[in-house]
Write a protein that binds this DNA or RNA. Structure first.
Ligand code: FES
Ligand code: FES
Lengths: 136, 136
DNA sequence: TCTATTTAGGTACTTAAATTCCGAAATAGG
DNA sequence: CCTATTTCGGAATTTAAGTACCTAAATAGA
């Protein structure tokens, strides 16, 4: 069983979690509630949000009534930026098969895969968190 | 560092190795030579070709002057089939984010990612091993 | 028939990534 | 203050991919 697009569970949690928080503004949400809503692992979600917090996307507040809320500028953040915070910076321009030394003059795929990678890239780049704020 | 398209080293070896063999027909090639040409791990390549052999794509011949050669029908094999033999069957039709329970009525990506997955799928499906036989 | 070569295939090892666990730190509310 | 709640962050665990190792089987060629 294989998935052609490369998205980690962690990245999925980040995107879904942030959208939930964006929708729920201005109220903050904590990990427990988020995990319940997403039907996902609480501990994993917590780790993911630590990264998002470090990256400045969310503000974290400890203690009772604590949780996470969006940082001021976070609304304009694109899905690409979120993805890259979690799964690492995307490298375009090289054949995804290029992990090994390629024997062929030009890539077997004639840049088809590059085209597709760029397509995913742009799709991720076009979607903003603000597209999901306070609407359904 | 992340790659948006999901291709294992093993799948890459399978594709590149088979194309080399297709080009080199009707002479067979052994693992050592293939690994040298691809500048890749001999043991890994061997394991990959065991799978391809089991799947019937190549015929293996042991002993001196042994190696691998394409099976009769292998020329018409698509890259998709090769990919699936190594990395597992591809499942289309669901949001790649769908590993977790999605809280949203309709996918955040409006089937954009489905469209792209299908795009990769079709690209892999259109390319045949025979496209690379005896030509450069 | 003997020997060197080469794949088969099982097991075990290594490495890296993903996930979980747990004690520490912060804080709101009583 | 004290306590319950909640995030923080390092450590440990799990999982998956890739790699190495070893013995067996096949076979070409001397
Ligand atoms: S780099 Fe070898 S096929 Fe693209
Ligand atoms: S299933 Fe949640 S975004 Fe597609």
């Amino acid at each position: 069983m294989s998935n052609l697009i490369n998205i980690s569970e962690a990245a999925s949690l980040a995107l879904h979690g942030l959208v939930l928080i964006a929708k729920n503004q201005p109220l903050r949400m904590n990990v427990k509630v988020l995990a319940e809503e997403l039907n996902a692992s609480q501990t994993h979600l917590a780790k993911v949000f630590q990264k998002l917090s470090k990256a400045g996307l969310v503000k974290s507040l400890r203690g009772p009534a604590g949780g996470f809320e969006l940082n001021n500028l976070a609304e304009d953040i694109t899905f690409l930026e979120i993805y890259e915070i979690i799964d690492g910076k995307v490298t375009l321009g090289a054949c995804p098969f290029g992990k090994i030394h390629c024997v062929f003059q030009s890539c077997m795929f004639d840049n088809e895969l590059n085209r597709i990678s760029t397509d995913i890239y742009n799709t991720f780049k076009q979607i903003k968190l603000s597209d999901f704020s306070k609407k359904e």
